[in-house]
């Protein structure tokens, strides 16, 4: 079995891809997994004040059902291990939104010994939302940006992960020294 398929990206979208992307764009199941303090901004985003469900964004309870992994805030190296496992359990196509300054450059934990600095070295990130914390408006604007990318076929972080798995693995193993993780088979 070829466990590491190289999937090429096409330049133009066919009609069936257009329809698929339309459906994917309007139906984003977000995994309810809060990694950092940013998770506190998710309840207002989902509930009646900002109501993300009108964009088709709703929570999914397990990684198997989810489309979007929302990394809410700082990632300790311990959490990174879980995030990688969760990300690998999600079904393609899957998207990652880096949420808050901590995922971009470490934020206020930039010199911490147990907090990673750039999330996109470990898993591919489609959209970053900056701010500490981003307000629910910013979160929704990030989701809308992701929807645009999905429609244009640009949200291809999952393809990037498949094609550059060795590089990502090397980076991950640099942080997670004792690597006792199941293999990622597609």
């Amino acid at each position: 079995m070829n466990i590491n398929p190289k999937i090429d990206k096409k330049d133009s979208l066919t009609i069936s891809e257009y329809i698929k992307n339309f459906a994917r764009k309007h139906s984003l199941f977000v995994l309810a997994y809060g990694t950092g303090c940013g998770a506190i901004e998710i309840p207002p985003t989902m509930t009646s004040r900002y109501d993300a469900e009108r964009f088709g964004i709703r929570g999914a309870a397990t990684p198997r059902q989810a489309d979007v992994l929302l990394i809410t805030g700082y990632l300790a190296t311990k959490t990174l291990k879980r995030v990688i496992r969760v990300y690998e359990q999600m079904q393609d196509p899957k998207y990652v939104i880096g949420f808050g300054s901590c995922t971009i450059n470490g934020g206020m934990y930039w010199d911490s010994y147990n907090t990673i600095n750039s999330l996109d070295k470990y898993i591919p990130v489609d959209v970053f939302i900056n701010g500490c914390m981003p307000r629910p408006e910013a979160v929704i604007s990030g989701f809308v940006k992701l929807q645009e990318y999905i429609q244009e076929g640009k949200a291809d972080g999952w393809l990037k992960y498949q094609n550059n798995i060795e590089e990502y693995r090397a980076n991950q193993k640099r942080v997670i020294k004792n690597w006792r993780m199941p293999d990622y088979n597609w």
């Binding site: 911490s112 907090t115 600095n117 750039s118 942080v175």
Partner: peptide
């Protein structure tokens, strides 16, 4: 030295 450790182990942007 936490900053040095961070520089050694994590990627600075």
């Amino acid at each position: 030295d936490t900053k040095e450790y961070s520089n050694d182990h994590f990627f600075d942007r």
